[in-house]
Nucleic acid binder design. Sequence first.
DNA 1: TACTCGGTCACT
DNA 2: TAGTGACCG
Length: 699
Amino acid sequence: MPVAKPESCDSRVIAHIDMDCFYVQVEQRKQPQLRGLPTAVVQYNEWKGGALIAVSYEARKFGVKRSMRGEEAKEVCPQIHLVQVPVARGKADLNGYRNAGSEVMSILARRGRCERASIDEVYLDLTDAAETMLAEAPPQHLEAIDEEALKSHILGLNNEDGSDVKEIVRNWIHRCHADHRDKLLACGILIVAELRMQVLKETEFTCSAGIAHNKMLAKLASGMNKPAQQTVVPFSSVQGLLNSLPIRKMKQLGGKLGMSLQIDMGVNTVGDLLQFSEEKLQERYGLNTGTWLWNIARGINGEAVEGRLLPKSHGSGKTFPGPRALKTVSAVQHWLNQLCEELSERLCSDLEQNKRIAHTLTLHARAYKSSDSDSEKKFPSKSCPLRYGTAKIQEDAFNLFQAGLREYIGLYGVKSQGSHYSRWGITSLSVSASKIVPIPSGTCSIVKYFHWQSSSHFSSIQSAENLRMDATHLSPPGNESYSEVGLPEPKIHFPGEDSWIEDTTPGLGLQEQKINVWKDEDLSCSPSKKKVDGFTEDTSPLLLSGTQGCLEQNQNKQQREFSKDESRFKSEYREQKGTRLKNKGTSSILKFFKSCNPSGTSLSQEHDRTVQGTDAQLTNGAGFQSSCHNLAELNEVEVAKENGTSSHSYIRDQDEWRREAWSYNINEIDPSVIDELPMEIQDEIQAWLRPRKRPNNIV
DNA sequence: TACTCGGTCACT
DNA sequence: TAGTGACCG
């Protein structure tokens, strides 16, 4: 539900930039002969000609809509050109569009705070730029105004009398007795026109824009005149615009909430909302949403432009509709592997390009059960700490799936009754990575230091790996990963499997999936159960796997950067101190300290010891000390849960378990260790240890 | 059991 | 926190 944000006085200048049928433009840039022709981008095309995900304005004139399939589009517009989305690993590959979006972003970010709202939408806060322009080169003194600016649409301006529209716009921009806010918007017009031309020049993409005093109005405006045009909402036009605006056109009101307003409250336009008091709206929709509704009816929206150019999460997913539903565990594993491969690749790029690390891996699925038509969508999502490396991600994602499937079957299935099993099918799968944070910049010089200290023992790959360990976390206790400790994968079997499953996908590392007869006990206390819920962090700092090359590359790149500009990291460090101090899981640094102890133990020896799991003490309670969490006890916990006897103590136990696994007490660092470090490192460590203010939530 | 494949945000 | 669900295009 939308919520009210603190208001601001709102003489801000906010622009919303919306790329015109973006995917089509990206394809037209690749194939210029398609420009100007009715074109649509389709995803796959086996079933009814594929799903349209972008439609050119030429095609829209024929009535082609985004919700259509390729075949339908051909019916209403036989000459339409259907371009297929690139496919990689058997699924749609949107990377080309993501990259194109980034090109645009980098241009738009030049003039003000820039928030990436989606792959093809951006908010800009141009207040400062507009104020500066007003002070230094106010529009009313400009002799020549750019053509693109003159083509702007100014809401509420009467230009139906046949007079020259551009002349009206010119006059509006030139007005010297205008309200200060209008003057700022006039500056916004000029700035946005310039930016849009720059985008066109550098990327060949056209876009539309809305310019107003807040995000909500800018977003509304950007959609009013498309393509390749811009629309301004002067303060005086706000109420007129909203009064007649269908309620469902408002962002956030296109769904159930908007429907409820229409049906339950008789609200058909945004203006209709004005009749309700804030209390009334709060009573019906809650405090936050009620206030938000009351505000938007008045054109009030204090939401800030966030200043974020990068996405907060990455995901890779695919649907398996109808008869394509995945019906065996090995089929699921095959597709999970594909999805994880893509995700891993994107995480690597993010790490390389943006020095960011994701912390959480989540698996989503949709499923149906033949015995329960309502079970669709109820497949539980599951998450765990994210370990870098394609193989690790694949393994963890598969474990998450198995955990989800057990729950799904347990919750929604009728357990085995005689010989009848209800069959399940997976209709959609996705994996995503979230909690993405910048690599703590303070550790960069630390990594460099250790690299210098021990170039023979400590390869660049290893330091890259430890960089990774800074951001990920030590294992939860009692969660030995089978593959790491050399135990065979547990044989897991599920009801609804067609048969004994064979690995039909060589090279994908599918686990053995022998399907035995389903038994109830397997839900609660089989070894596989312990494994399934025991997805875990590694205990080893040597986690190299499929992305080794990527990490090595990253590290080399990073090293170049380190030597290039150490001071930059220092300043980043100061800027991001709050954020970094918030970062947990810097425990590998502690390992480094201990590894560099006065006993003279070599790093590699220390590494070996660490690998063998003796670092419980070293990490000051970071992960392994809690011996009660051995497999047997975990199993008891699981039994309690399965029996429906889960108690508060179970919940608390789990919470503590997580806290311990995900953080450590920075105060427990042994100060004598720090003294042995070179001064530059000491400074940074000391900064970590100083009492700290609660950081602002600025990334 | 066919509106994809992303993404963001809020609630609990 | 993890999980769910609404919403956008």
